[in-house]
Simulated scan of single mutants.
Amino acid sequence: MSNPLQRLTCRDSYQRVLDVVDSHTCGQPTRVILAGHGLEAGMSPLVARDMLRDERDWVRTVSVMEPRGHRSMFSVALIHPDRPGGEFGVVFMDAAAYPDMCGHATIGTATTLLELGLVQAPTPDFTGMFEFGLQTPGGRVPLRARLETGRCKSVAFVFEGAYFLKAVDLNLPDIGAVAVDLAYAGQWYAFLPVSAARTTIDVAKIKALIAAASVVRAALAERLPDPDGRAEPIIGNIVWTDAPNHPQAQHRNVPISAAGSFDRSPCGTATCARMATLVAKGELGFGERFVKEGLVGTIYHGVARPDSAKAEQPTIVAEVEGTAWITAASTLLVDPSDPLGNGYLA
């Protein structure tokens, strides 16, 4: 019997075609686009990001949005190296924009590269720690993968330059005064206790958490007007915090983005920002183990180290480790007659 899927292999019938591999990092999805995005091998991630944003934004909307994705989907356009032994590059994409850095997607991409054999360990059945790097719009990200008989069991990434900005007091409607910690780690984050939302961190309460985050975001936008005059507030990610349920964790959180998406994992860059905040407040020491729990009960392991960079703003070097699992390999197709083919958000 012939394979019925062969009817779909005539790619000339489709307006746009993307070859992808899906994974999840502790619950949060990453879709790596291997081909079809039109990026040349060896391109600078900054140049590639600008090209996608200005000329081929359909790559983002097709790979992230419905009907092939959802508001919390995250995709990565993979840039192949232009020489043997060269490092892969990435462009990060979500439902709202093109972030310079994403922790869970870095772990998911690194795992995908190793599992596909695009990045190769010293031997096929290698067991131990294997180091390589990924070129991102925010700069090179060092990676350390833990392999067991050739399979990727976890990946740690290093982020340099995470820092705590300051704490601000907000007067929220129907809530009153609440202290909010502002920190940066590739993206801006605002941390505040979930008690200010009058609910708990729970999958069943996510709609209430998203609604409450919008109120906090609006209050921050009034308190911290963007100096560049852009319509978007400086702080897009609101992070609700609480005591953990996981026996190994010290903190639990769920980040809510400006697009209304939420992170199922503990969030890699939010973990970096959280460690920077705790270090600045004297609640976490350099070299101490930090374990953070996410919405669905999974954990990331982190450690903060001193940053050697000389700057007015004290920063840390943050290392975060998590695990990703491959979930699918597929081809995304856009039929030219489909009025919703390029994606939408409902």
Rank of each mutant, 00 (worst) to 15 (best):
A177T: 12
R49M: 15
A324H: 09
C267H: 04
D50K: 13
G294W: 02
G42N: 01
N342V: 14
R68W: 14
Q6R: 11
A243F: 11
F286P: 03
P233K: 02
G343N: 07
P306H: 10
C152F: 07
E160L: 02
V47C: 09
G282M: 13
Q187I: 11
F191N: 05
H246N: 13
I33T: 00
L209Y: 11
L52W: 04
Y184T: 11
A311G: 08
R60M: 11
F286L: 03
V20S: 03
E160S: 13
L118Y: 13
G297V: 03
A197N: 01
E87W: 06
E160G: 08
S330R: 03
T298D: 13
S63V: 01
F132W: 03
G341A: 06
A110D: 08
C102L: 00
L46K: 12
T327W: 10
D57K: 06
P84A: 06
T106V: 01
P67S: 10
R264F: 08
L78M: 06
E148S: 11
P306V: 14
L114M: 06
G108N: 01
A183L: 08
V239A: 06
F191E: 03
A121F: 12
L333V: 09
L278N: 10
T106E: 00
G287Y: 09
M73P: 06
L114E: 05
T30S: 15
E55M: 09
P225D: 08
A221K: 12
S257G: 05
A35Y: 03
A276W: 10
A276P: 05
D338S: 07
T149W: 04
I175Q: 14
A243N: 02
Y14R: 05
G150F: 08
V216I: 05
P314T: 03
D174S: 11
M51Q: 15
V203R: 15
V178P: 01
E87C: 07
